[in-house]
Structures are given as C-alpha cells and as structure tokens.
C-alpha cells in the first residue's frame, strides 16, 4: 500500500526531527521500525481511528521470567524503595495461575487493560482518569486528588497509589506522591513510534503491540483468526489487552 509507504517515510522524517528537537541524538538503539508503530507528526493529536492494544501469548510466557516487569520499572523510573511491599507501585506484574480443577499452571503479565469502557474513568470525580482518543487510559495527575476511587473500581488491580515523595522520575514519565498511577502503555514511546518497553523486552516475543483499529495490522489479523481471551469478559469492558492460552 502506498499509503503505508508514505506513512513510513513520514515516520522516519518526523521521528528524526522529533528526536533531534527533543534532544535525543541517538535514534538507533531504542527505536525499532515496526509497521504498526508510527510516530505522529509534531502538533498532531492522537486519533480515534487508532486503538492501541496488545496481544499476550501466555503459552510463551515463562513462570520465573520478569523481563517485562524490569523493563517497565527502568523505563518508567519505578525505582523507589518503599518499605511496605503492599505500598509499592506495580504498573505491570507477573501472575502465576493454577487451574483449581486440572492443576494446569501458567504465568502471565498483568497490567492496565486499557478498556474501551474503563470503570476507573467512570468513577473518577474530577475527570483525572481519562481515555485518550487512541484508547490509552491515563491518569491526568494535574487534577488527580488522590481519592483512590479508581483503585476501588478497577477489576484488574492495575492501579497503584504513590505513597511517598519521589525524586527519581524519568523526565518523560512524570509521577508523584499522592496521585494514582498505572501502565501508560509507554505512551511517550508509542507517540514517537517506539514499542512499549515490556513488549520490546520480552525474550520470547510473547507480547504483540499494535493498532486494533486497523483491520490489516498484525494484532487485528491474529485476533480475527485465533482464539483470544478478554480478562473478566463478563464485565463487558472491552479491554485493549487480549490474552491467548489462559
């Protein structure tokens, strides 16, 4: 498709300008050119034609491996040492599952599912919990008052409350005390055409990132052809993260 080619060429150009403009000199190491991830030109808003999503193949996910969790932590600056483990932030975590009847065991990463109908957005009193046009669910910390109602409402336990003042933030990933936070789908990377850190880090390639709004994307094609699961499908939240092999 010529459109696609243009898009790609456009990505290269704008990616380079943006990188230069933002002061990132090295374009090579972090940035991978993948057909599904395209940088938006500067000044352009996220489009509702796109819906970012993820397909996680749990059959490839090893129980002891937490490469995605570590990658998330270093990318997003989640490095604080909170004494009480129950007060630490978990943007992504590995869950080990065992079927109560059959005893079958497997493992999977769990994070914000970026629902199309997010309960956290519904319950937020100020509108700080929000869904971007391209389906990424975020917390607007500028107006988050730290009431934690969204944490009560989220069926995936995907959100964390920052219990301590922070100083080690990644400049591109602001986060701070008294606000609620969760996986951003690495929105700062996605916006410049990179993959989320967890997707890039998975040694087994178990995580596929892409545009659910584009029927020709790899993720859409696989979801159309293979059996996939929405976690807590009974709640009809239409999560952007799908699983295989649960």
């Amino acid at each position: 498709m010529s459109d696609n080619d243009n898009g790609r060429r456009g990505f290269l150009a704008t990616g380079a300008t943006m990188a230069a403009g933002l002061g990132f000199v090295a374009i090579a190491p972090g940035i991978r050119l993948i057909e599904i991830a395209q940088a938006r030109p500067a000044g352009e808003a996220a489009s509702s034609a796109v819906r970012w999503g993820m397909l996680i193949d749990t059959t490839k996910c090893a129980s002891g491996c937490d490469a995605c969790v570590s990658a998330c932590a270093s990318e997003n600056g989640i490095v604080e040492q909170v004494e009480d483990p129950a007060q630490r932030s978990h943007w992504i975590r590995k869950i080990d599952l065992k079927d109560k009847q059959s005893g079958r065991e497997h493992s999977l990463p769990m994070m914000c599912q970026h629902c199309a109908e997010p309960p956290c957005v519904d319950v937020c009193p100020t509108g700080a919990s929000m869904k971007r046009a391209d389906g990424i669910v975020l917390v607007d910390r500028h107006i988050c008052i730290g009431c934690r109602y969204c944490m009560m409402a989220c069926p995936y336990k995907a959100r964390s409350f920052v219990h301590e003042p922070l100083t080690e933030q990644n400049p591109e990933v602001p986060r701070g005390v008294g606000c609620v936070e969760a996986c951003t789908l690495c929105v700062h990377r996605v916006d410049r055409g990179q993959l989320p850190a967890c997707v890039e880090a998975c040694p087994e390639g178990a995580l596929l990132f892409g545009d659910l709004g584009d029927p020709n994307s790899e993720i859409s094609r696989r979801i159309a052809q293979e059996a996939t699961t929405q976690v807590r499908a009974d709640l009809q939240l239409n999560p952007g993260v799908r699983y295989q092999g649960i």
Binding site: V121, D122, V123, C124, P125, T126, G127, A128, I143, C144, I145, G146, C147, R148, Y149, F161, V162, V177, G178, C179, V180
Partner: peptide, 25 residues
C-alpha cells in the same frame, strides 16, 4: 485523607458526571 488534600479546589471545580463521587460533592 486525600492523596492531594491541597487540591480541594480541583475537587470543587472539575466534575465528571458519570462519577458517583462527583454527585456526592
């Protein structure tokens, strides 16, 4: 008890009307 108790003004000026909390305000 709010994480950002200093933002009471935000609670009073930003409303999301799908939120039961906002109705309660």
């Amino acid at each position: 008890d709010l994480g950002r108790a200093d933002r009471v003004m935000i609670a009073a000026t930003y409303y999301n009307f799908t939120s039961v909390f906002a109705w309660n305000v």
